[in-house]
Write a protein that binds this DNA or RNA. Structure first.
Length: 768
RNA sequence: GCCCGGGUGGUGGAAUGGUAUACACGAAGGACUUAAAAUCCUUUGCCUUAUCGGCUUGUGGGUUCGAAUCCCACCUCGGGCACCA
């Protein structure tokens, strides 16, 4: 009988279902994939790599007796469906439903063992009711606030963006150059959690790389605030990490957006120059602004250095960020690369205060030109200077910015707030506040979303005073729904609570989370923030949502490029499944290379795993239950490899076993043990061939794993010359006697033996 | 510029101080076949006609009885951050 993968895979996919018991007497294992945004083009072979790995672990854990929660859902708010609606007029709801159906069918074909009864969808009002609920709780606690400030603005998507969504000055979604726009927006106070988000990284079993990226993103710096008095009586505060260089300050520089600039304009000798400069910088995108350092003095204004009373000029410059620190700096050209460039360009004073090297020197050294601090090490001078001067105080700064949370687009969760002239901002507690139908999806570009055009939705009565009021028309960003979805899988149909506390205690945290590393500072940081907030208000019982994280490497196209529809280099899993079967595809994706590294796809590789399964299919069964050392060594190896995410070597060790059995045949009992090893990787064929109905993970025999003979490598002067099979446990003298009698060894050993290095059961090295 | 991670046959890769190139693909030769496909067998790092042997894990140095593996310098590829004071 031939191996008919189509028949077998259909049969077992119809037969198997994987619902998880809510039995708290059994140990649980929560194994989660980052849920996808279902795009219109469907999956390519790169997508399922992570899903296959999580499926292997889920099946393996079930076999070990765990109650495995392994759900799947859909992250369906966002721009692609909305842009498609703008182009075609088809409602995003319809597009999303089609795409979800397509993705689901593709995942099912792969034989992935999801708990489908727990499926969720972020655009379902029963789901986003709770996204809105969390927002309202944040609003109550003052963590969601309204502000009008220049923020990152994508002129192509016509919406504001969070810092995390700007990549190298470009919009993360569409690649357009990001500009600044002054609009009203809702902001979440993620900075309140900066320290906890930083410190709790230590609790996590995550790739060091991702943790480091989050640390850098949070960007905690220790230093000092310094208060400079101006000659007009006003004050400017700056942040510095180098209070030890205070005697070298030759300039005070403000960002063009600094509030002081506006207020001193009339006092300046060069008012028109400054106005021209402000106008010029305002019209530039971030990228243009970063091209060259420029600045202009505020003539007539000077500041007094608090450590030595020295008068220094005040400038504005384009390289000073308004969003970091206080939007102003003390400039020390001798010990800062940027300040040095700037001072050279405008021929400004440079004073060396730390000795140690060519300027600009940014390292440690002894202080010079620093009055009574001369000769002190710069590392010690920091604290001494802070202690000495009242206007210099210890301070900490973060790169992390609060999260700009409103989008001027249609396809997102409505922000459940009402603006009342009398009562101010009033929460809409009648949730879900559903997204209304709209005729025109086109973003307005005015700072309002298309929802603003729907008068009957916008105009409401104030829930507090009953007077005329208007709804907030901004929507939530892409990332809102994915901030807490892992909690909803625990209790997807609960209408009274986000999640039942008992169930939450049982299933949380996620034990294993698998997904791409592109979410390192987006989803993974936002979700940790929301989780910590939910912990604070008693909704969840753990400090962190995801205990262990694994990032799958990308699967590159045959040409070494990233797979994408536009490059036309994608490979469809459907085609591969049709031709070789889901089991072969699953094996191949895991066999390709180390899970966390990116690898190039090659259709031909599938032939190898298909041949392997055909060999498995036609193994000769022989009488008697032979004690099979290789089988038990394979059980040990596969078990260890799954635990360590080394799926490629697990499969290669199974191949070695099967290559042996092709020659020798094996017993029914031994074959069933092997099929259980294969089951997590290739579930359909394994079940088809298995006779044993007990699907538990096989144990290896310690006795059978150990060989009683060993191969000893023989080196002469460190060079490998020969090897010999010997019984285990021989001592050096015994091995030496045997080895020195061998012809090959005699040939190389001439003259007296100086030294012998002996590693029991492994190696002998004779030095002559 | 700074911070991570890599560089091993024709290809994907294995080996994290002890026989480098497991496993797989591809290629070459052979068997079966009227023929082809499939399957099976053999060979397959490089140099040397072959043997004997020598060389080989990006490059150069070092530590060690012994280095792909540890240390130093450099080259190179990939990812992240990027005026964060």
């Amino acid at each position: 009988m031939n191996y008919d993968h189509k028949f077998i895979e259909k049969k077992w996919q119809e037969r198997e279902s994987f619902e998880v018991e809510e039995d708290s007497t059994k140990p649980k294992f929560y194994c989660l994939d980052m849920f996808p945004y279902p795009s219109g083009v469907g999956l390519h072979v790169g997508h399922p790599r992570g899903y296959i790995a999580s499926d292997i672990v889920s099946r393996y854990k079930r076999m070990q007796g765990f109650n495995v929660l392994h759900p799947m859902g859909w992250d369906t708010f966002g721009l692609p469906a909305e842009n498609y609606a703008i182009k075609t007029g088809v409602h995003p709801k319809i597009t999303v439903a089609e795409n979800v159906a397509k993705f689901k069918a593709q995942l099912k074909q792969l034989g992935l063992s999801y708990n489908w009864s727990r499926e969720i969808n972020t655009t379902d009002p029963n789901y986003y009711k709770w996204t809105q609920w969390i927002f309202l709780r944040m609003f109550e606690q003052g963590l969601a606030y309204e502000q009008v400030l220049p923020i990152n603005w994508c002129p192509s998507c016509k919406t504001g963006l969070a810092n995390e969504e700007v990549v190298a000055g470009k919009c993360e979604r569409c690649g357009a150059n990001v500009t600044k726009k002054n609009i009203r927006q809702w902001v979440l106070k993620i900075t309140k959690y900066a320290d906890r988000l930083l410190e709790d990284l230590d609790l996590l079993d995550w790739p060091e790389k991702i943790k480091e990226m989050q640390r850098n993103w949070i960007g905690k710096s220790y230093g000092a605030d310094v208060l400079f008095k101006l000659n007009n009586g006003k004050e400017v505060k700056v942040f510095t990490t180098r209070p030890d260089t205070l005697f070298g300050v030759t300039l005070l520089i403000l960002s063009p957006e600094h509030p002081l600039v506006e207020s001193v304009l009339s006092e300046l000798d060069n008012k028109q120059d400054v106005i021209n400069y402000l106008e010029e910088t305002k019209n530039k995108s971030d990228i243009e602004r970063m091209e060259e350092k420029t600045g202009v003095p505020l003539s007539g204004l000077f500041a007094i250095n608090p450590v030595n009373g020295k008068q220094i000029p005040v400038w504005i410059a384009n390289y000073i960020l308004s969003s970091y620190g206080y939007g102003a700096i003390m400039s020390v050209p001798a010990h800062d690369q940027r300040d040095y460039e700037f001072a050279k360009k405008y021929d400004l004073e440079i004073i060396e205060v730390v000795s140690g090297g060519e300027l600009p020197y940014t390292g440690e050294g002894n202080l010079v030109n620093s009055g009574s601090f001369n000769g002190i090490k710069s590392s010690e001078a920091k604290d001494k200077i802070i202690k000495e001067f009242d206007s210099v105080t210890k301070s900490i700064n973060y790169k992390l910015r609060d999260w700009v949370f409103s989008r001027q687009r249609y396809w997102g969760e409505p922000i459940p707030l009402i603006h009342c002239e009398k009562c101010g901002i009033v929460p809409e507690e009648n949730i879900p506040l559903e997204l209304p139908e709209v005729e025109n999806y086109q973003p307005t570009g005015t700072g309002e979303s298309p929802l603003a055009a729907i008068k009957e939705w916008v105009n409401v009565k104030c829930p507090k005073c009953g007077g005329d009021a208007k709804r907030e028309t901004n929507t939530m960003p892409q990332w809102a729904g994915s901030c807490w979805y892992y909690l909803r899988f625990i209790d997807p149909d609960n209408d009274n609570a986000l999640v039942d506390p008992q169930k939450e205690k049982y299933f949380q945290p996620v034990d294993l989370y698998i997904g791409g590393s592109e979410h390192a500072v987006l989803h993974l940081l936002y979700a940790r923030f929301w989780h910590k907030f939910l912990y604070d208000i008693g909704v969840v019982s753990t400090k962190e949502p995801f205990l262990k994280l694994k990032n799958q490497g990308l699967i590159m196209a045959y040409d070494g490029q990233k797979m994408s529809k536009s490059k036309g280099n994608t490979v469809s899993p459907d085609e591969m499944i049709e031709k070789y079967g889901a089991d072969s595809l699953r094996l191949y994706e895991m066999f390709l290379g180390p899970f966390e590294e990116s690898v190039a796809w090659n259709d031909n590789g599938l032939i190898g795993t298909r041949r392997f399964l055909e060999k498995v299919w036609s193994i000769n069964l022989v009488e008697g239950n032979i004690e099979d050392r290789l089988l038990h060594q394979t059980i040990k190896k596969v078990t260890k490899d799954i635990e360590e995410f080394k799926f490629n070597t697990a499969i290669s060790s199974m191949m070695i076993l099967i290559n042996e059995w092709v020659k020798t045949g094996t017993s029914r009992e031994n074959f069933d043990l092997f099929l259980k090893l294969l089951y997590p990787f290739a579930p359909h064929i394994s079940q088809e061939l298995m006779k044993d109905s007990d699907l538990s993970w096989p144990q290896f025999s310690e006795f059978l794993v150990e060989d009683d003979v060993t191969t000893i490598a023989i080196q002469v002067n460190g060079k490998f010359r020969d090897s010999v099979q010997l019984a285990k446990g021989l001592n050096q003298q015994e091995v030496e006697n045997i080895v020195l009698e061998r012809e090959k060894v005699k040939k190389w050993v001439s003259g007296s033996i100086k030294k012998v290095v002996f590693i029991p059961d492994k190696l002998i090295n004779i030095l002559v």
